[in-house]
Design a protein around this nucleic acid. Structure first.
Lengths: 124, 124
DNA sequence: CTGCATCCCTCGCGATACTG
DNA sequence: CAGTATCGCGAGGGATGCAG
């Protein structure tokens, strides 16, 4: 692994970067442990290539954990780590900061991107 | 302006997206009001095309304000708005969250990207 | 079931030149 | 001084097919 000269701020924001990372975090915060296929069903429109890559990135950031059960067929579960759980209040703050200055926006509360999503970012 | 179906979380994160937005926010939080040229000098390596574009985006997000003085030659000053100032504690939280789980990282505190930067994100 | 390999296309950003 | 116009490259992410 090569050196990373970004500031802590930029390193931190990288964990929420891209189209899918916050949606995955949101799904896990709403549902708890989720399997690969369940996650894929929640994240409407994501492809395998991108889902696998994004899960790997979040795992590398220690925001989610990957647990493999060597059954047949294989079962893999993804969870928020302690670091991931501690990110949730920050994401909530961003939501509130946005809504404070965007009062007209519909009160979509979840970051998963599904228009029919009923969930909120759970912080406890 | 077309509709924006992103969640408040994704809308909020868009304000910190890309290579330069947080660096500009950081510079303005450290220095207060800055002119175009001063900003360009602080942001080591940015080009005019990208600086002008990014300033426009931040202005559209109401995170910075643009004030033009019709002197000769023209003088333009950029400041953080109330919304921009209220984003600073969130950015600080992200810094601290990152550093908590990255204790080995050097204590670079500013997001401006300059290796010699001595500043912190000012929140008051 | 849980992925990875490959191709392709768009978009962010850098480089450079020019303007009121 | 404070930008705009144009071009080009590389990375992110979608579509599809294959694999352990």
């Amino acid at each position: 692994m090569e050196n990373d000269f970004r500031s802590p701020l930029e390193k931190g924001l990288a964990a929420f970067d891209g189209k899918w990372k916050t949606r995955i975090i949101c799904c896990l915060s709403n549902n708890g442990s989720l399997r690969y296929t369940a996650l894929k069903k929640e994240l409407d429109g994501i492809t395998d290539a991108v889902l696998a890559l994004t899960l790997k990135e979040l795992t590398d950031y220690s925001i989610i954990s990957r647990t493999q059960f060597n059954e047949i067929p294989v079962r893999v579960e993804y969870d928020l780590t302690k670091k991931g759980i501690e990110a949730l209040p920050i994401l909530k703050d961003i939501c509130q900061w946005t809504q404070k200055y965007n009062p007209k926006s519909e009160q979509v509360r979840c970051g998963c991107g599904r228009p029919d999503c009923k969930f909120d970012l759970k912080t406890n």
